[in-house]
Structure formats: structure tokens, C-alpha cells
Computed example of a mutant assay.
Amino acid sequence: MNKVGHIASIWHYPVKGMAGSMMSEAEVDERGIEGDRLWAVRDVQRQEIQSCKFRPQLLQCRASYASPDMTVVNITFPSGERLQCGDSEANELISTLVGHPSELRHLEPASNEAFYRRYKQGDEHWLDELKNTFAREPGEPLPDLDNLPQEMQEYVSQLGTFFLVSPLHILTTASLKHMHSLNPEADWHVERFRPNIVIETEPGITGLAEQDWVGSTLRIGSTEIQCHDTAPRCGAVVRKQQGIEEDRSILRSIVSKADQNLGIYGNNVIAGSIRVGDAVYLV
């Protein structure tokens, strides 16, 4: 085992697509960080779960749990107004914000496949919509979206979850420092990238460190996390959030200097607890 750093911060996002909140410690299992993405916004007309890819205005809202048992979620809107998930007025404010009739919905069982199904208006329309969310400029490459697994073509998330690819997203300070050195005028605020675990890397670890970990396992506290793929970035990283201004140069730098990727995806293979300050080992 090789120590690669320690946990700098832990994040969960109670509502898919909205800003989240930091935690000092968390339980981790096959569903990822406890309390992460248990709610989502559903487009009423399309009958489809939405993300900040398609509804970037959601990033201007912040969701947090109002109680330790994580049964009540508060949403702070751009106006400063705070309402609870399940409140009809919250649905009205979200509908106005994103410009489409919408409702907040809790996770449904995996057996309710219709709840997770993509809206498709023709065979190619949905794919063109997806490609557009990556906000590429002429000549810039896209991830390989033409050969998505069949399940990703049919559903907006893994059945029984609100995760598209993986329940864990990991980012290192080495990567953020590296990208800042390439584009020092940009605001590389960590919340732009919506990580679950931010790792403060050991001195001497530089560059896009976590991309070298793909295929390996991280041991943190009593848990183990399999690093399985890099994270291609879409237009959401440039969008305005509470306290963060729009910055299109962020995505230009990631596409041209980091092969489109920043951070990695992970799957928990041993459930347990993690805390800020816990050492991180590469197995």
C-alpha cells in the first residue's frame, strides 16, 4: 500500500443537480455516500428525471438535510427563500426557475423502470440533446456517446438510483492545482465539479493524479473504493452557482489540457465509515 493523501472534504447532494453540503464524516456503501441524491427534479411533461446537464439552473439551488436522520431536505433558492422537498410551493419555484413544469420526487424502486426511462422524441433526438449538454466548441472532441451501453440509452440513471455512471466521484487537490497552473485566471472552485470525496494529495504528487489510479483500489478508513473510470466533463462545470460565477474558460482548459476529464468515478467494495482527515492509501 502507498499513502497518496488524506480526505480534505466529503460532500453529498440530497437533490440531484443541486449544490450540496459538506460532511465531517459519512457512511459509505454500494449506494455511495449516505444521503447522496435521494431526491431529483422530474419534468412533468417529459416524465423524465432531470440533471444539471439539462437544467443548469438547478445549480443555483442548494439542498441540505434539516435533520440528522436525513428525512427532511431543505432547498435554498437563488432568492434566499428556503422550502422543503415535498412542498408544493417548492415545485412551483423550481418550475419557474428552469422554465418547465417540474416536481421533486424521491427515489423509486428499481422495479419502477418507467420512472427512470429517458424521454425520446425520435431515435436520434435524445442523443443530440445529450451531446449538446457537453457544450463543446467547433473542433473540440466529445466523449464516445454513440456507443453507450444499452441501459444508459434507455434510462437516465441506473435503476433504483439517481446516478448515471457511478455512486462516487473522487477529485484530488493535485488535479485542481494543476489545472489552476494552466489557467490561473479561472475560478477552480471545488464545488464546480461536484465531488463526493476530495483528497489532499501527498507532497510530490502532482498533475492529474487520480487518473493514474483507474483500475486500482483506494483504502480509506474502514472502506475500499474501486477506481473504475475517468470523469468527462460537461457544460455544468462552467455554470453559475450560489457564490460562483459562470466561467467558460474552465471547460476549454479541461477539454484541451486534461483530455476532457477531471476526477474519477468509483464504486464502494467494502462498506464502512470515512472521516475528514482519514489517510488514503492506493492498494
Score class of each variant (00 low, 15 high):
residue 83 L to C: 03
residue 83 L to G: 01
residue 83 L to S: 01
residue 83 L to N: 02
residue 83 L to A: 01
residue 84 Q to S: 12
residue 84 Q to T: 15
residue 84 Q to Y: 00
residue 85 C to Y: 01
residue 85 C to T: 15
residue 86 G to Q: 03
residue 86 G to L: 02
residue 86 G to K: 04
residue 87 D to I: 02
residue 87 D to A: 02
residue 88 S to R: 10
residue 88 S to K: 10
residue 89 E to M: 08
residue 89 E to R: 15
residue 89 E to P: 00
residue 89 E to V: 14
residue 90 A to Q: 05
residue 90 A to T: 08
residue 91 N to H: 13
residue 91 N to E: 12
residue 92 E to F: 13
residue 92 E to G: 00
residue 92 E to W: 11
residue 93 L to S: 02
residue 94 I to C: 06
residue 94 I to D: 03
residue 94 I to P: 03
residue 96 T to Q: 14
residue 96 T to K: 15
residue 96 T to L: 13
residue 97 L to S: 04
residue 98 V to N: 03
residue 98 V to P: 01
residue 99 G to Q: 09
residue 99 G to P: 01
residue 100 H to S: 11
residue 100 H to D: 04
residue 100 H to E: 11
residue 101 P to A: 13
residue 102 S to I: 06
residue 102 S to R: 09
residue 102 S to F: 12
residue 102 S to D: 03
residue 103 E to N: 08
residue 103 E to I: 14
residue 104 L to S: 03
residue 104 L to R: 04
residue 104 L to M: 13
residue 105 R to G: 00
residue 105 R to K: 13
residue 106 H to K: 14
residue 106 H to Y: 11
residue 106 H to N: 11
residue 106 H to M: 15
residue 106 H to I: 13
residue 107 L to R: 10
residue 107 L to I: 14
residue 107 L to C: 05
residue 107 L to G: 01
residue 107 L to S: 07
residue 108 E to S: 10
residue 108 E to G: 00
residue 109 P to Y: 03
residue 110 A to K: 11
residue 110 A to G: 08
residue 111 S to F: 00
residue 112 N to C: 09
residue 112 N to Q: 12
residue 112 N to D: 15
residue 112 N to P: 02
residue 113 E to L: 10
residue 113 E to H: 10
residue 113 E to Y: 05
residue 113 E to R: 14
residue 114 A to Y: 00
residue 114 A to V: 10
residue 114 A to R: 13
residue 115 F to H: 13
residue 115 F to R: 14
residue 116 Y to C: 05
residue 116 Y to P: 00
residue 117 R to T: 14
